[in-house]
Amino acid sequence: MSTEAANTNRADMIVCENVDKWYGDFQALKDVSATIAEQEVVVVLGPSGSGKSTLIRCINRLEAHQQGTIIVDGVELTNDLRNIEKIRSEVGMVFQQFNLFPHLSVIDNVTLAPKWVRKMPKAAAEKKAEELLEMVGIPEQAEKYPGQLSGGQQQRVAIARALAMEPRIMLFDEPTSALDPEMIKEVLDVMKDLAHGGMTMMVVTHEMGFAREVADRIIFMESGEIVEVGTPEHFFTNPTEDRTKLFLSQIL
């Protein structure tokens, strides 16, 4: 297994060591080890059911891993309530199904966590939210409700909501899978801007174009294992593992 770090001079933001996770009989993660450095953009690829989503959900402690160690920004994920609180406010997450709060307006969706978790004054939180909505390109929708927005707009609000906590790491769980084709680009553009701005990102996606263009490294997973890790050129042009080749031949 290749464990070379792309940038050894930078601090490690996420360190997974020998992580195992079971759902009942089913082992979703098998001895997964990976390291992600600061400002690095890592794309996780793999067939469905390969444990990609489980991995990034473990990093946010939406799921608890059962064996091994996960350290995020120097804090180990254990049962310690304080650590969980700390990680959650430092790691932003974007979901496949957006998961916006339907009963809150867009601006309330974005300001909720800064106000109640970061304890930011209301005015400051709203100012920040407006900036973020500007950044994701929908400043005029602030007073609307999620149900009144298109899928692409909803996903961009979801990104703004995650960014409002000023996270140091962003996790994306198939952010474009639930979108109509014409809306995928607007979301990917926001993600590219984010990557170019130096955000540490871990992205599960099926968008090969995005992976090739933006990723610093690609992790390929299958049946809960990390099969291959490498740069985009290495991965798309000259993969070493047979399983990777098979996967690429199926989707390209």
Binding site: R88, Q97, N99, F101, H103, L112, W116, V117, A158, A162
Partner: peptide, 27 residues
């Protein structure tokens, strides 16, 4: 209330009581 709502609330760092009060119960 969808499971995703709980996860989203957790992911932005709300505590359990905040999650219940702001997200789950209103819906």
């Amino acid at each position: 209330v969808m499971r995703g709502q709980y996860e989203a609330a957790d992911a932005i760092g709300l505590t359990t009581s905040q999650r219940t009060g702001f997200i789950v119960l209103p819906q």
